[in-house]
Design a protein around this nucleic acid. Sequence first.
DNA 1: GCAAATTAATGATTTATTCAAG
DNA 2: CTTGAATAAATCATTAATTTGC
Lengths: 221, 221
Amino acid sequence: MGSMKVHQFARGFWEHEPSLTLGCKRLRPLAPKLSNTDSTPTTVPPFDLKSFIRPESGPRKLGSSDDKRETAHVDTHPGGTRWNPTQEQIGILEMLYRGGMRTPNAQQIEQITAQLGKYGKIEGKNVFYWFQNHKARERQKQKRNNLGLNHSPRAPGVTTTTTISSSLTHESRGDFGREEDSPYKRKCRSWTFECLEEDKRYCRNEGDRTLELFPLHPENR
Amino acid sequence: MGSMKVHQFARGFWEHEPSLTLGCKRLRPLAPKLSNTDSTPTTVPPFDLKSFIRPESGPRKLGSSDDKRETAHVDTHPGGTRWNPTQEQIGILEMLYRGGMRTPNAQQIEQITAQLGKYGKIEGKNVFYWFQNHKARERQKQKRNNLGLNHSPRAPGVTTTTTISSSLTHESRGDFGREEDSPYKRKCRSWTFECLEEDKRYCRNEGDRTLELFPLHPENR
DNA sequence: GCAAATTAATGATTTATTCAAG
DNA sequence: CTTGAATAAATCATTAATTTGC
């Protein structure tokens, strides 16, 4: 249950770096690109590497500072488990899939998540992953059906000798029957990362240009 | 400039859906999974599909509600262009890469982005993509060097005919020389999506379980 | 009937490939 | 041509469903 074993691999690689002389070690392989419109704005902080990426952010905080993570998770979320969709959520997602949705953008994921949240706990990435996985698995199911019909209708024994090789990776997308999205369309997805540590939560705002970090109401924890 | 042409492909496919009988259409291929601990909390909203994923959320709002997207983007970001890293940013990223960082997690990306933001405009996904691309291209450069030494040492002319085919996809990962991260380690990344529409910005809090949406200080725009 | 072992299904993550901007 | 950005494919890992032994 609690065997998370965080152990992120930011090793203590920066301890024995005596002084950071970055910026002139090894540049781009091309020409020295003269800096942009707003680079080096006369007050460049010298990149205090000691303060950022501190190597002991992983295997700490398992004995003291969390006294409340045992109180409110007993029925809703059993810790760090994965998303377990309810039937209603699956139904809605499949309905959307049958409607033609394949790769929802950020706003669509937002709305879908908000709606599916009424039926159970869900996050945005669950919706994203669901569409990715469902699309991929429908595709390979279709592919498996297609080359299973002209080779041997049954006999699930030894079928691997025919080397389902690398062809028809892109041609087999047009035979879906229903309408499908064009491959590799450029949609700006604009997703962001978010710190999900145990005691501090930050949320970066990507839409803003000022790149601000703000802790979100710590009285909730 | 504003030729985004959003045109999201959630068509008007749900207008002619008379009543939503979701939840009993297609179950798991195995037994009917009886619902979880907190599914159907006695007040299931009947999934008002009309209100969510409205089909005309794409090509609207280009004449009225955005009067400010022409004012504040003239020098910092020329619209929807991609990230153009500065030399300092590249230097720091390569330094981190040489230090062994391959796939930073959310918190590391957070901090890296915050630091690199001092040298120019950058977002979290740029850092993520940079590590992805740099790792992949170092890998294929290594691969190309490895099988270029016993085939043809130069001839940069027609190089695409040699078809670096699909073998040694997993064996060629151990010959990096330096230390590398083990493939497929499970790190909980916990990234989230974010609405980046023109007039409204939401930020979902993934760490919290209540899945709340909140607009972040609209007086800034 | 129930619990441990097995298996199938699938959520989540990483790698490979491709497109397109500059 | 280089490389940022995005998607597709591969695959790890966990959970539910099934089977098995008692």
